[in-house]
């Protein structure tokens, strides 16, 4: 029965209306209005879903690892309420302000501490910084084979078989275990938490690990452990002006829109 590890990040809700987010350019920091609440990164929820489908078919266990500071328990516990077994929080002020490199350093140390596993599953990217580096970087740092952008993950005969999304379809790639998989949105909707799951999750206490707990110095993680320097954070200015086409009826507006495109030489 496979032992699965899923990495899941808490991010500001990416479905929040565009434009509600502001940037403090003097501090190079994003300012989130109170209306944007934190959620589990949607791609990571799909990684949890991929793990749950394997567990449904084969049994086994799912350990979720989340890294950050001030993690909201009701948010980061969501994978537990979906059906994951254990939650480990890498939570410490020292983890703040990290990049892919310092995040991977901490996650790799935590995974080594967890010990034996068959698969590490990550979302393809986090919906806040959208870099898409952590899963692949983690595989490099742990020396694992990696298959990215999975739309389907199966384990059989001690191997993992993955349908990997490519621009014009998908390819089927197999690897020995242990391995690391990143999951793409084509995997499909993650399941809802059940009431039973929510009850079970509320009783579970996550393990909380600091850098020292995973054998790291505070200088290796978070902002000081970065490889990339954030030089500038800003918001592009938009000068768009939309010419609204109106008519006696909406049908007429449709006709007039075509006419307008012709006079503007667009068609």
């Amino acid at each position: 029965m496979p032992k699965l590890i899923v990495c899941a990040k808490q991010v500001p809700d990416p479905e929040a209306p565009p434009g509600s987010l502001k940037v403090d350019t003097s501090a190079n920091k994003v300012v989130l209005p109170a209306s944007i609440s934190p959620v589990v990164n949607p791609y990571d929820e799909q990684a949890v879903e991929a793990a749950l489908r394997l567990k449904d078919a084969l049994g086994g266990s799912i350990t979720v690892i989340s890294l950050g500071n001030n993690l909201q328990r009701d948010v980061v516990k969501k994978p537990l309420s979906m059906g994951a077994d254990e939650l480990i929080l890498l939570e410490d002020p020292a983890f703040e302000g990290g990049d892919a490199w310092s995040t991977v350093t901490a996650l790799a140390a935590a995974i080594k501490k967890v010990g034996e596993f068959d698969l590490v599953i990550c979302g393809r990217q986090a919906a806040d910084w959208d870099a898409g580096q952590v899963g692949l970087g983690l595989a490099e740092m742990l020396g694992l084979p990696v298959i990215s952008l999975a739309q389907k993950v199966e384990v059989m005969d001690g191997r993992v078989r993955v349908e990997r999304v490519i621009p014009d379809g998908y390819e089927v790639i197999e690897s020995s275990l242990p391995a690391l998989i990143t999951v793409s949105n084509e995997l499909g909707e993650p399941r809802y938490a059940t009431l039973k799951g929510i009850m079970a999750a509320s009783k579970k206490q996550p393990a909380v690990w600091t850098p020292a707990d995973v054998g790291l110095d505070a200088s290796q993680v978070g902002e000081v452990g970065r490889k990339s320097k954030l030089v500038r954070l800003f918001q592009p200015t938009k000068e768009a002006h939309c010419e609204m086409i109106e008519g006696e009826s909406v049908e007429e507006a449709g006709t007039l829109l075509a006419d307008r495109l012709r006079t503007a030489k667009v068609i």
Partner: peptide, 24 residues
Amino acid sequence: NIFKESQYGVVGDYRQVLPAFAKR
């Protein structure tokens, strides 16, 4: 939000707007 990103726009149900637009 799409109207903030567009140069031309029509407000209406596509079921009514699109057939007229497509025909023209």
